[in-house]
Design a binder for these strands. Structure first.
Length: 254
DNA sequence: CGCGTTTGACCGGCGC
DNA sequence: GCGCCGGTCAAACGCG
């Protein structure tokens, strides 16, 4: 009776592993549910904002100003491919036209435009010599809490890592912010690259380390908000997560 | 002194 | 052709 049955011992180990995997599975399921619910909420908020704040800004600030200017129509048609508009929420009392997007910019001009009393500032990227990227920053006509940055061109270098780490998406990135009466959400976008780079590193420590709850929540929000920008990727990710939940984890083979 | 910002001047495109 | 407008240049200026 002293010698333990090796089979029973093996079964015990396997059972332990199984329980551990089930716990992990449950955790992942909960995370997925949280992500899904947050995604739904944020997507609804995003759609609301798209049809109100941002679209209002675009139609009255950008579209009105640029589309009404027939000289810019060809450029506007190229906008989707060669330039991007980013709304950045700032303190309306802050009169500086500074958009912290992870790059260093050198201001080379400022103009007061016809349709907006707020001056428009012109910046060139100064992080790398010869970088062709320019941006224009102007306070939104309707909501002075927002700055609209228009980026043109592609960077020929990477983002400053010390600044980039503070942003949720690696590489070049900027933050769109939009407010609803009750909430604020941030949508990380990448105005210079075709794809959206997401940090989906939702490690198990998320639920183990309560000190990181706020940061993890924010990261999840950032991820979810990014998903809202790309329905195709949303579907692909949802399918992948669903698969990982449906598929029972197999015990490790020796 | 070097670097970045400011700001008036200048240029080019477009509409009338 | 002229005027308007957005975009850019470059000298002056300020700051560390």
């Amino acid at each position: 009776m002293d010698a333990p049955n090796p089979n029973k011992q093996k079964v015990g180990i396997l059972r332990e592993e199984l329980e551990q995997l089930q716990k992990e599975n449950e955790t992942l399921r909960l995370m997925f549910e949280v992500m899904s619910s947050k995604y739904r909420l944020l997507h609804e908020a995003y759609l609301r904002e798209s049809s109100s704040t941002i679209c209002r800004g675009l139609t009255r600030f950008d579209l009105h100003e640029q589309f009404s200017d027939k000289s810019l129509r060809p450029q506007v048609q190229l906008t989707a491919a060669s330039s991007s508009h980013v709304f950045v929420k700032t303190d309306p009392r802050d009169e500086s036209l500074i958009v912290k997007d992870g790059f260093q910019w050198r201001k080379y001009g400022q103009k007061v435009t016809k349709n907006n009393p707020s001056p428009r500032a012109y910046f060139k990227c100064s992080m790398a010599p010869g970088c062709p990227v320019k941006k224009k920053v102007q306070r939104c006509l309707d909501d002075k809490a927002f700055l609209m940055a228009t980026y043109e061109g592609q960077h020929n270098h990477d983002v400053d890592p010390t600044i980039g780490q503070a942003l949720s998406s690696p590489g070049s990135s900027a933050t769109i912010s939009a407010t609803t009466p009750t909430s604020e959400f941030r949508v990380p976008v990448n105005p210079f690259r075709p794809g959206i780079t997401l940090d989906l590193n939702l490690s198990g420590s998320n639920h183990e380390n309560s000190n990181n709850d706020n940061r993890n929540d924010k990261r999840i929000e950032d991820c979810v908000a990014s998903l809202a920008k790309d329905p195709g990727f949303t579907a692909a990710l949802a399918a992948a997560v669903a698969r990982s939940i449906v598929e029972q984890p197999k015990p490790p083979t020796p």
